[in-house]
Design a protein around this nucleic acid. Structure first.
Lengths: 195, 195
DNA sequence: CTTTTAAAAGAACAAACGTTCAGATAATCT
DNA sequence: AGATTATCTGAACGTTTGTTCTTTTAAAAG
């Protein structure tokens, strides 16, 4: 046998990335073999190399795409009139964006150590750019006298960690709706950095 | 060659666990081979099986020991006069305990998916027991009218995530001392769950 | 000093790994 | 319809994997 009926790169390509995403998130990059990914797609292992030069690139592309979408969607948000409104928008955006992409988030946070040094540097840069957006909001609020944080950098990391932690327990269709979760977290964030 | 000079299980045993801990934290459980661990200890791979029945048990024992120490040390803390004092003690304890064990914490949070189902269940139970201690503090404070959280369970997860996030950036000997970090986080936690 | 035991070496095992490649067949183009 | 191209199979490659086992030697016990 060779080329199978209905085979097309526009179909198989996305399926390869989807399978890699799901399997990496579930079992971890190092624990997943190319043959497992291929089986999930319904193809032999060799065929994967029509869609990626190697396993490492598969991981890297998933991460880069995820972070670039994160930055793009955040940049597309309308500006806020003041730091408090900006922080609320950031909080709600972060929770919503991440809750909708549990696998991508999991990989982006857990598989950093499986990136080659050059790939790691590039991903870190993207992540840093996102964190800077929150840090700028906090700094602006501090200058405006509406926030009170002892250390802007530490507060940035604390808020991000708290918000990203939503993904460890939140499941859509559970006890709380996404909107309720956003409201609860915004309440805590507002108080934590407020006067 | 066979048994080497100075070889003793009281020495090699801890070295095996230490090597596994460091390598698992650095590269991930699945990416580390028994031969790498053996090389770090200065021994052949076969010799490791004098100290662990298999690789999985090595990971499980590291996690279990870590969580049992966490629970034991927390239980050894003196009782607090009120919920606010209890929360401050929990906050400071959590930060201090985790900052001193970066490798153990990393493994306990990242390698859950590499545990066998039975081992996973046991570890999850221990983690849950620890989270319950914080939840009880929050519930007591809520009943006493000194805390104001919209959802106790969510607040528990939020505080834990925020505090554990310290490990992603904190390094002893850096810009901030452990005491300063404790104070900054306690400030944010207090405000986040306060009235 | 002799015997026993504990600890390690080192070879061996089948299985699985990422990746390559020649050949085959479906889809597309002319 | 025929030629070309895109896509996949299936076998093969050299390595590495976790684990077992026999043999050897140091340490401990008598």
């Amino acid at each position: 046998m060779a080329r199978t009926a209905g085979s097309h790169s526009d179909i198989t390509g996305p399926r390869v990335r989807a399978a890699a995403l799901q399997l990496f998130a579930r079992h971890g990059y190092a624990a997943v073999s190319m043959r497992q990914i291929a089986r999930e797609v319904g193809v032999q292992a060799g065929a994967l190399y029509n869609y990626t030069p190697d396993k490492q690139s598969l991981l890297f592309d998933l991460m880069r795409t995820h972070l670039e979408e994160l930055l793009a969607e955040h940049a597309a948000m309308p500006g806020a009139p003041d730091p408090v409104a900006a922080l609320e928008r950031f909080t709600r955006f972060h929770i919503r964006f991440h809750a909708r992409r549990p696998d991508e988030v999991f990989i982006a946070y857990m598989e950093l150590r499986n990136l080659s040094p050059e790939n790691f540097a590039e991903i870190e840069l993207l992540r840093r750019r996102y964190e800077d957006e929150l840090e700028n909001i906090l700094r602006a609020g501090l200058a405006a006298g509406v926030f009170a944080v002892a250390d802007t950098k530490v507060a940035t990391m604390a808020v991000i960690a708290m918000l990203t932690g939503v993904n460890t327990w939140f499941r859509e269709g559970g006890r709380l709706s996404l909107n309720e979760v956003e409201r609860i977290y915004w309440d805590m964030v507002r108080k934590a950095v407020g006067l």
